[in-house]
Amino acid sequence: MSKSITVNGVKYPIDVPEDMPLLWFLRERLEFTGTKFGCGKGLCGACTVHVDGNATRSCVMPISAMAGREITTIEGLSENADHPLQKAWLEVGVPQCGYCQAGQIMNAAGLLNNNSSPSSEEIEAAMQGNICRCGTYQRIKKAVAMAADELAKEVS
């Protein structure tokens, strides 16, 4: 029986070479191009997706290790672009070129999955693996904090 992987709620067979990183399976096999290639070595965070809810660098994650896992990409983060982070991103106007932003949002969402009220130091520490060459960091910090506040309201 062939192995399979679930991406944004849909199950797909794994039918590519075993050592292919998840990034290329997503981008080129399934054509989910929202997840970006930036460095290919786990250094920049552009390729961040969720594996069972945890932020993961898809460029260094062989597809063979992903069998049976649940993957969420930026395209599947929310139904109607209404995740608190997406709303905050829109409100703050974070992106410049936008290329790193899927990775930034997915990484921040991973953080909020594990820690719904991070301090500003925790935000910086969690986001430091994600490079933005356009320099949107100030707005990223603001938007993540804003989304965390929003989540806190939803919970209480």
Binding site: T33, G34, A81, W89, L90, G93, V94, P95, G98, A102
Partner: peptide, 8 residues
């Protein structure tokens, strides 16, 4: 285009 960016 921010709306497009945040949805990939």
């Amino acid at each position: 285009d921010v709306g497009m960016v945040i949805q990939g």
